[in-house]
């Protein structure tokens, strides 16, 4: 009888010790939303060394980290990722993707080779070229400045995008939850506005008005 009690005690103690490993502690980390974070004021842009042709090399060494105002960063990315001659609604959809991509990575900085930064200036993140903004792309960015495209609870997520194919709706990009750059122009040409374009490529997202 004593032996049975002892075994029961040992089993109970062992069970209590094993509990933390079996039942994980609840994740108390709060989601980063538009309600508990503000729009970044500055982006830390890692400048990578150029290749022999004078173009930033996505695998080149990081030379330095440049602090760029957030709005300036977005304006200097958009004409290098979208064509400035595209329709305004396509540019607005692109501006939203560029902005939310940058915002997400500002909240998730990385450290490589001793440099801590949000993004670099190559297509590893977004193609940034200093002082390359254009009037049409600036207007598109200004048009979406007070809104954000997030999860319905306001959580900031990365809006990913890629080139896609010309004159094609690029359904496969919708399946991958990425926006096709050529697809934005395709839909804008057919009268879709930028919210409709975003809704086509990103599901379970919402357009949120930013608190001033």
């Amino acid at each position: 009888m004593k032996t049975l009690r002892r075994r029961t005690k040992v089993a109970a103690i062992g069970f209590m010790l094993a509990m933390p490993g079996v039942i994980a502690a609840p994740n108390v980390e709060a989601a980063q939303t538009i309600y508990n974070t503000s729009m970044p004021s500055v982006m830390r842009v890692a400048i990578r060394e150029n290749n022999a042709s004078g173009e930033p090399d996505p695998r080149g060494r990081i030379i330095y980290v440049q602090a760029v105002p957030f709005v300036t960063y977005c304006e200097d990315v958009l004409p290098n990722e979208w064509f400035p001659s595209w329709r305004p609604e396509a540019l607005k959809a692109g501006a939203m993707a560029v902005k939310m991509f940058a915002w997400y990575h500002h909240l998730h900085p990385v450290t490589i080779d001793g440099f801590t930064f949000d993004v670099d200036n190559t297509t590893n993140f977004q193609h940034f070229q200093d002082l390359s903004s254009q009037p049409t792309t600036n207007a598109a960015f200004a048009a979406i400045q007070n809104v954000a495209y997030t999860r319905p609870n306001g959580e900031i997520i990365e809006l990913n995008y890629s080139a896609g194919y010309q004159n094609d709706p690029n359904w496969q990009y919708r399946n991958a939850q990425k926006m096709a750059q050529w697809g934005t122009e395709y839909w804008a040409e057919r009268g879709q506005n930028y919210v409709q374009i975003l809704q086509f490529y990103y599901q379970n997202r919402a357009l949120m008005k930013l608190q001033s």
């Binding site: 064509f83 400035p84 001659s85 002082l131 390359s132 903004s133 254009q134 009037p135 049409t136």
Partner: peptide, 12 residues
């Protein structure tokens, strides 16, 4: 310098 039709462009 990239030139497109029907829009205004700037170059630095």
């Amino acid at each position: 310098i990239r030139m497109h039709e029907n829009i205004r462009q700037e170059a630095t």
